[in-house]
Amino acid sequence: MSNDLWLALLATALGTLLIRLLPLLWMQRRLRRLDGADGIEAMPRWLSLLGPMMVAAVLGVSLVPDRLDAIGWLATGIGVLATLVVWYRRRSLGWPVVAGVTAFGLVEVLAALP
C-alpha cells in the first residue's frame, strides 16, 4: 500500500476514535459540573431519548433480510417470533438469541431442500 493510502487509513482510524471519544468527554465534564445531580437527570432529554431509539433503529436495519423474497421475510418473522416467545418466558439474553437463530435457520434450511 502506498504512503498516501496508509495516511488515509490512519486519519480514518483516528477520526473514528475521536467521534466515539470526544462526545463522551463532553458528557463527563457536564456530569462533573452538575456534581450531585443524578446522572440520567443531568443528561439532556434529547440525548437520553436518542440512545434507546438508536438501538431500535439498529434493530430495524438488521431485520431486513439479505434475501428479499418470501422465504427471507418468513424466516425473519419466525425468527423474531421465536426470539420474543423465549425472551418472554426466560427474560434472559442468551437463550432467546439461540432460539431465534435456530428458528430462522430451520426455515432457511427447509427452503433450501430440493
Binding site: S62, D66, L84, P96, G100
Partner: peptide, 14 residues
C-alpha cells in the same frame, strides 16, 4: 443464518 443473531439480540435489548 448466523447473522440473524444480531437482530435477535437487538430485539431482546429493545
Amino acid at each position: 443464518i448466523l447473522p440473524f443473531a444480531l437482530p435477535a439480540l437487538f430485539l431482546v435489548l429493545v
